[in-house]
Design a protein around this nucleic acid. Structure first.
Lengths: 171, 171
DNA sequence: GACATGCCATGCAAATTTGAATACAAATTT
DNA sequence: AAATTTGTATTCAAATTTGCATGGCATGTC
């Protein structure tokens, strides 16, 4: 979906797709190792969602989205908007095992994490509004805002849980 | 890490690992297709984090965690607690492309999603405290709570963004 | 002009993940 | 008691993902 979306405005080759995604900060909220872009492009060309418009010999290969590709993009986009799925977060795994850490270490970890979150949050808040005019669409900021509120939610949970651990209500 | 954690309290075979994870509701906040448990077990046995204690012929294979395995588990657990990483959320990808949907459809999607979130949230709130006494550790509730607050964060963002879209401040 | 540097651009082997297929035991229905 | 369904337990091929290796090209520099 990301790749298709990047190609909506015109043909690009693999490396340009990567640059575009980096510009959008996609590395932080999506899970894309850039090596897989080329696989994705080739596969979608195979499926008829893209066509090669230039090159091939050994230089760069430029892909253009087809009508089928645009349709598939919209299908997936709408599905992503309508489907509410619980968020997969590696920290949840860490939480699950909080009873396996002794209390002092756990409290240290929790306090350390809370501090880190505060720092990250204030950095992000300062960053909001910063990318304007660099080619990234304005609503990318909204992306950043949502991330911010979610990290804030984690911080709130921590601040609620720390005292509980202190007075041995948890774990 | 999940598999190692499940094995901390005693040897189990693959299917039991799966059952345990299902009991914890891990399918919702972790990304485990249960087919990969067997690969993970075999690989970790290879690396010396686990040992086979029973079976092999064709029936079930029971694995036990080794000292190395316990050590590795703790290493990973601590790392997960200390490392703050932005959350990877497929909805963020959907957001990124909100300028590719026409305004009426977008508003529909946003309102629909907001409603769904409200329903999901109230269901989850009712579920908190429900798994007690079923073998799941009590702090699994905390897990649910964190998920809840994160979904609430998404809902808050939506409720902030909907009016903006209505008065064309967004996208 | 030989050489180093850094960015551009892709390919690929190895590792991992997935989803479905298999096989058999236990419980249930007919 | 035969047939069907459900639950237990694993395996496997195919698809995907990763991270690094490779090679080209422009630029500076001594």
């Amino acid at each position: 979906m990301l790749i298709l979306g990047v190609l909506l405005d015109g043909p690009l080759h693999g490396y340009e797709v990567r640059r575009r995604l980096e510009l959008w900060g996609a590395d932080s909220w999506a899970n894309v190792a850039y090596g897989s872009i080329y696989h994705g492009l080739a596969k979608m060309a195979d499926e008829g969602l893209l066509v090669v418009v230039e090159g091939g010999k050994g230089g760069k290969t430029v892909y253009e989205i087809t009508e089928d590709g645009r349709f598939e993009f919209h299908r997936q986009l709408m599905q992503a908007w309508y489907e509410v799925r619980p968020i997969v977060d590696p920290f949840q795994v860490a939480m699950t095992f909080m009873d396996r850490i002794n209390r002092p270490d756990l409290l240290n970890a929790m306090r350390g994490r809370a501090e880190q979150l505060q720092v990250t949050l204030s950095m992000m808040e300062r960053a909001i509004g910063g990318k304007q005019g660099f080619g990234a669409p304005r609503h990318i900021d909204e992306n950043l805002k949502l991330t911010t509120t979610q990290l804030a939610a984690q911080l709130a949970w921590l601040q609620d849980a720390i005292p509980k651990v202190e007075r041995e209500d948890l774990p």
